[in-house]
């Protein structure tokens, strides 16, 4: 065993009063104790640790578990070792599948959207419309793969419309006082099942705009084969439970309307990173899936500030959908 790990184990044993400690896994560090498997997190950023302690304190409730920090024998939530701190957490293994548990997920996200709130995260908000335009103009001057260029130029007009719509939706809520926050690395791995209850692993990532993170999570899940139906149910449950209020709906829609995949395709092509056929394939899937999600949300009847929002057959909304889908 390396000396650093030995020191860690010794510190854990002394501070948390574990009688026996064995390493179950090194990355991430899992220890096997007489009280079960525990996850150990290292924090080099004290401010982030402090923020996470407060965050967990806000979101803790009786409806779901949160991976809170264990207290040491002295009643402290962390152990200082050298130039970093360590925290000890529960480590349940069983994932809570989204399929057939949509109601539980929706209830959890709705609860979380009420408790996990703070000042909006100041992300560098370059207007997407400008970004699309400047990138396109830049690409014109450079050599881009002809296959990619064909797709990019064909979708340019739609990308501009979508970028403008995303900017408009975000602007509607840019002066909100508090925002729903989720950890930037929120994924299906974040939710585990424990005693028929959801266990939320808040992890140790920076807090990020919850609607954006959730929209990206939904998109990722929807892109997985055979998960479309489950996502449909999740959105329906979210609407039923009141998660999809005007603000949340607008911000999730903004995330799907924003032509990130178009920007990504062009940037990858300019850098020559990814083979053209693969990146264009991914682009098409994402572009289609986003349209599908927008349509799904509108069909649920969610009120939003989107052009034609809330009306499945709204003239403007339909026009936006059609202009997008026609290209693919």
């Amino acid at each position: 065993m390396n000396p650093d790990l030995a020191a860690v184990l010794s510190a854990l044993q002394a501070n948390y009063g574990f009688r026996q400690v064995n390493v179950a896994r090194e990355q991430p560090l899992l220890i096997d104790t007489e009280r079960g498997i525990k996850k150990i997190r290292r924090w080099t950023d004290e401010a982030l640790l402090h923020l996470h302690l407060k965050w967990r304190n806000h979101v803790k409730n009786e409806r779901f578990f949160v991976d809170r920090m264990y207290v040491t024998r002295a009643g402290l939530p962390s152990v200082r070792l050298g130039n970093y701190s360590m925290t000890c957490h529960d480590a349940p293994r069983e994932l809570l599948a989204l399929n057939n548990n949509e109601q539980q997920w929706a209830a959890f996200l709705t609860d979380l959207s009420r408790t996990s709130r703070n000042s909006p995260i100041n992300e560098s908000m370059t207007e997407m419309q400008i970004q699309v335009h400047s990138l396109f103009e830049q690409a014109k001057q450079m050599r881009v793969d002809p296959e990619i260029w064909a797709i990019v130029s064909a979708c340019y007009s739609s990308a501009c419309t979508r970028a403008a719509e995303a900017d408009r939706l975000r602007e509607l809520h840019q002066y909100r006082r508090s925002a729903f926050l989720l950890p930037a690395d929120f994924s299906r791995e974040s939710c585990k099942a424990l005693f028929d209850t959801l266990f939320f692993e808040l992890g140790q990532s920076e807090p990020s705009d919850g609607c954006g993170v959730l929209a990206r999570f939904v998109l990722t899940e929807a892109l997985q084969a055979q998960r479309g139906q489950s996502i449909g149910k999740l959105l329906q449950e979210l609407a039923l439970k009141g998660f999809l209020d005007r603000e949340n709906a607008d911000l999730m829609l903004a995330e799907w309307v924003a032509p990130d995949e178009w920007i990504g395709l062009l940037q990858a092509s300019l850098q020559g990173d990814v083979p053209a056929d693969r990146s264009s394939e991914v682009f098409k899937c994402v572009w289609d899936q986003k349209i599908e999600l927008i349509r799904l949300l509108k069909n649920i009847g969610v009120q939003s500030g989107m052009a034609g929002g809330g009306a499945p057959n709204g003239s403007e909304g339909q026009q936006l959908d059609q202009s997008n889908t026609l290209l693919l």
């Binding site: 009786e62 920090m69 264990y70 207290v71 939530p77």
Partner: peptide
């Protein structure tokens, strides 16, 4: 007795 998270009382609604 305090819980492993240091709470003395577990509060439901």
């Amino acid at each position: 007795l305090p819980t492993k998270y240091g709470d003395l009382i577990i509060r439901d609604q």
